[in-house]
Design a protein around this nucleic acid. Structure first.
Lengths: 157, 157
DNA sequence: CATATAAAGGATAAAAATGTCTTTTAATCT
DNA sequence: AGATTAAAAGACATTTTTATCCTTTATATG
């Protein structure tokens, strides 16, 4: 028996890929807990963040390759965020993981859709989307950490 | 050579599944072009909307089963929207196709995330998301058609 | 230098989303 | 009733996303 009267607490609408979520969580975990002198192993990120270890390793690899996280091999090695890394815009994390091959700025994936010539869904989503993207472009990892430290947002991940 | 300086015109961020896009497009096409006395074949929807015919049929089947579109078999049959169908909230279309098994109201898929106890991503997305979902819940197919007819939004799909 | 450690890289597997094809069922028309 | 039409249903194929495992490379340490 269902009482689902269009009260959608949980919904599939706005999302980044699972992989990108993993990436953001891992970077954030490193931002809060690591430093150049306090490196963290992949497996020690995977446990507190609930990310499958092997998969997380792949994600971290990709992030490392794109200079979003730093890594050192061998004993005493692991992952950490450098001073430079911490200024990464959130959008870059998502871009690196999800790629930019989904050519869909329009909600219905239409070619001829913009503010001047909106498709039927455009205005329903328009502002919303623009704002969200702007937020992700303008905010860096550092900004998120600041919110955590000033009690504006909360862990754990 | 790339000049992609974080100017993300196209991005993978906010999205509904492809299947849901197909569903919305098909319903909208029917809303504009069909009636109980003007039924339309699946293949005649698939061409103008650029949706693979066989896959569209599956989507329409599902929509029909959930009373979002109406269908009649046999000669002179096809799909159309009844007076009742046209009042379907957009959210219901997406729900029916994408299902409600993605338990992720939180951007990072966290359990303990809400306005009172926001995760680090929450406020970046928060309002944005709430507004969008609200729009999809409050607007019906009829509302979208009205926008088209009053020149506020445009076809084709 | 030999050994251990830990990330990088490559290959493969499983699951989900997307797409196609064939058969069945229901309706219409002669 | 028989033939034709068109959606419904079922089976299957492909692609993408997510996940795991094994080997290689780089680093540190005894």
């Amino acid at each position: 028996m269902s009482f689902n009267l269009y009260i959608y607490f949980n919904n599939p609408l706005i999302m980044i890929s699972n992989s990108s979520k993993y990436a953001v969580k891992a970077v954030l975990y490193l931002a809060v807990n690591s430093s150049e002198h306090q490196k963290i192993l992949a497996k020690d990120i995977s446990v507190p963040t609930n990310i499958p270890k092997a998969y997380l390793s792949k994600v971290l690899q990709e992030l490392s390759r794109h200079n979003i996280v730093s890594s050192v091999k061998g004993p005493g090695g692991g992952f950490y965020l450098s001073k430079e890394n911490i200024n990464t815009p959130l959008m870059k994390i998502i871009q690196v993981i999800d790629g930019d091959n989904r050519l869909t700025s329009c909600m219905l994936s239409l070619q001829d859709c913009d503010a001047e010539h909106p498709c039927p869904m455009h205005d329903l989503v328009g502002n919303t989307k623009v704002n969200f993207v702007k937020n992700l472009e303008q905010n860096t990892v550092r900004d998120l950490v600041k919110d955590i430290k000033t009690g504006k947002s909360f862990l754990p991940l």
